[in-house]
Design a protein around this nucleic acid. Sequence first.
DNA 1: AATATCTCCAACCGCAGGATA
DNA 2: GTATCCTGCGGTTGGAGATAT
Length: 509
Amino acid sequence: MSNRTNESEDKMEANDYMDSPSTEEATSEGNMTGGGLLKKGPWTSAEDAILVDYVEKHGEGNWNAVQKHSGLFRCGKSCRLRWANHLRPDLKKGSFTPDEERRIIELHAKMGNKWARMAAELPGRTDNEIKNFWNTRIKRRQRAGLPIYPPDICSQSFDENSPSLNMGRFSSGETPNPEFLPTNNLEIPSVEFKGLGVNQELYPSFVNIPAGNFLSAGLSPSCSNSILYSKMHPAKRLRESELSLPGFGAVHPALEQYNDDFQTASKSFRTSYDHDISSSSYLPSGSHALINGNSSSLPISWAMKLELPSLQYSHSQMGSWASPSPLPSLESVDTLIQTPPSEHAESGHHSPQNNGLLESILYESRALKNTKNNSCGQTPNTDAPANGADSSSQLHDASQLHDADWDSCGDPNSPLGHSTASVYRECTPVSGNSLDEPQLMKTLPVKQEKPDWVSMTNGNETDGNSRHLNISRPDFLLDSNWFGLSADYGKDYFILRDAIGALLAEDVA
DNA sequence: AATATCTCCAACCGCAGGATA
DNA sequence: GTATCCTGCGGTTGGAGATAT
């Protein structure tokens, strides 16, 4: 397809063994599998010719038979891929036209990472092409600090879907629609935590904390670059995206548990996220980023994959999981959040390494505190950056304040002492249904979701536990030294702070 | 010119779902 | 009902070329 391919094939041509595939040749190349039966790696033109010939004679499909009948030493999968991506006669060659590019963006805004479906909408283009284009584009825009979707695409997608589908409206300069959540039209400049320093220097675990919660707070997908989700199994994540999209309901309870007070908020982060990631049944299938049922696989040091919400989350959907979106959407942003390697596993401490949320911070700050105090030399994160200690000290008090909470809930050293259910029960005023119960998905939205967003929107929720986030006061983040200002990441902090300030202003207005 | 880094993309991998035995 | 095979999908990787230092 590309020149590169041809070049590659030309190179391969010299070693082409297709007419007389010798085991010696194959194994020497190291690209044979199954004991030298199947070839891997770049296709040669001879192989292409064989495959084309085979398909012309036998038609597409039955790819596993290709090897048997054509003499190709390729697995059926490889044949299908080669045919679909390079040999199909109806394939367009060359780079995408501007129209195609725009179409891809539009489609992605609607569909998320549904490359095959997008390819179906773009004759002559393959899912692989589109995927590569998109990934490249994402990276480019991330670097440039640009929103992933242009404003017009956002609004178009928005309009196409539903008046209430507002999550995609992150365009700049757009007049906020008062119908929407006051937080949904906010554009936040792309902030890469990679450069922010928070995750690397202030606190490794930070990156995981506000991720879903920021999203759930209605920050636009354009701030996706700064919003970090846990990495779930890609296949499951995407497959689940095809299911209903109740929105960010899973994290709403988290927000509801916030208070202006950072310390309370920190606890809420902990408890809610514990629940979110550990209770896969609870997670709405649409909250791709959080539905990694395999939350236990979450390391504390991540190369995190960022999942964006679709443009289709509606206010109503957020308020009620009973309203799945017909067009699930998400996108993956290859935001790699490089964090210092965690030594939790080696530390011997119990650590909340699996949730990576604020509890991790608090736990680790506690550990750091203890390290300082006891000089035992064993810390949960022994190779944390120097200023990590400083930053953790910012959280120090919070962790102290919640020692009792942790102690009362199980393992005094680790928030993992909480079971999902216990955490949830402890921190949410939900009665009756256990999160461990399978029917949670059905029952929880009724009991949980409405108050979450309603309360956040109205900002007048006065739960007895005072753990609700008043979304009208997103400034709680600003006042909490959340980002641990330093010269290194001050700029990004202010960007984000301004954005949150704008959010607040909108809400107030 | 040499080296390092980045970009692009073809191909691979694992998984899930459907079909069939 | 279960096992197996086939196919398709989406994420990831590795290498070649391009660009920067």
